[in-house]
Design a binder for these strands. Structure first.
Lengths: 193, 193
DNA sequence: AGTGTAGCTGAACGGTCGGTCGGTAAGCAA
DNA sequence: TTGCTTACCGACCGACCGTTCAGCTACACT
């Protein structure tokens, strides 16, 4: 393998590892994907992977960090908005419309592997803090736990739609369209109890 | 172990295996739970488990079969209803209101382990057929793929709410309440595009 | 008493897992 | 040329995985 014996810079390889790892995790699950799978898909050995990441879990942390900026952008945007009554709807639609396939895959990975996420968060990685902040910005300070949960659900419509599409012939465009419709319905003001 | 040397009948043990397995799968994931974990939680050896189930996958098939009747009941109920315009909403609420913790756990297990479900379905177990039938009964025969996907999403609000509640302090009652609110909003007729 | 069998045990199997370690070739700086 | 760093390899480790199998025991039937 790698018979050209070209030398690559580390950042490139690292990014490729993350890319391939996310694809394989999506296809076969985190536990169903071995680091041998990832490295051999790149024409590397297992050891090369351990040069760039200190553990299998660290790959997931790397994936989460890659997406961190997107959440920060959303938080900044919300903070800069006037607090109109339809803020939640506008924020939700902004989130849906900025969805990329990679983000979708990562969110599904995170949700499908609760024990993994707990392990990562126990060892210091901030996994949920970004979303917690979004919810805090969008709900009243005296909101009930139920209201907060509802807001979380709203921001999960994209991955919910993606999950509902599993095993069907629905296209990615269908997924986004459904998530949009659902976000609008869920945040329609006249339904607020 | 089992020093009382009591003799149990097989059906009881089998049911207990299913119960404990579902609890452990929920807590640690399917791949994160070994046969040894399940059997030792019951004070048995793993060989005893292989007396009742021919493989680890077969345990999941057993869990799915346990819940099969609930879906059949829903299908029968829908088929017996008049085809009013709010049928989807009524069906969705019936589904939400009949939710049990066990069903919720199983649905989450199924959704978190797509590769496993694909494997089971490839080897003959019918995993999705029930839900497919529900959707077929509720949408127009000339409905688009997007409409069908939306209907799937509606019937997934319970587990979506459950997932959104992960890591928060929301109670099971909150989950059901949020799922109810979401089902109503999602099936509100005036939002149909 | 003898036979069958349901329910379970204990020991082992081959295989794969995540992770470690010593080494090494290429590039660069002095 | 020497020496250090970067990027990677190949061999190996102990642990654990799902699974198999011969055999044991308590009970039911005849």
């Amino acid at each position: 393998m790698n018979q050209g014996s070209e030398r690559r810079i580390g950042a490139e390889t690292r990014a490729e590892i993350l890319r391939v790892a996310l694809a394989l995790f999506t296809e076969k699950g985190f536990e169903g994907t071995s680091i041998r799978d990832i490295s051999s898909a790149l024409g590397l050995t297992k050891s090369a992977l351990y040069y760039h990441f200190q553990s299998k879990d660290a790959i997931v942390v790397g994936l989460l960090e890659e997406r961190h900026q997107e959440l920060d952008d959303l938080i900044d945007w919300i903070a800069a908005q006037p607090a109109t009554s339809d803020l939640m709807q506008r924020a939700a639609l902004r989130w849906v419309d900025s969805t990329t396939p990679e983000r979708l895959r990562l969110m599904r990975l995170a949700q499908a592997n609760q024990p993994l996420m707990k392990r990562l968060s126990d060892s210091g990685a901030d996994v949920r803090a970004g979303f917690d902040r979004v919810i805090d910005l969008l709900v009243d300070e005296k909101a009930t736990a139920e209201d907060r949960l509802y807001a979380r659900l709203v921001f999960d419509t994209v991955s919910a739609a993606g999950r509902a599409a599993q095993g069907t012939d629905a296209s990615p465009n269908d997924v986004i369209a459904v998530a949009r419709r659902a976000s609008i319905s869920l945040t329609c003001p006249e339904h607020k109890s």
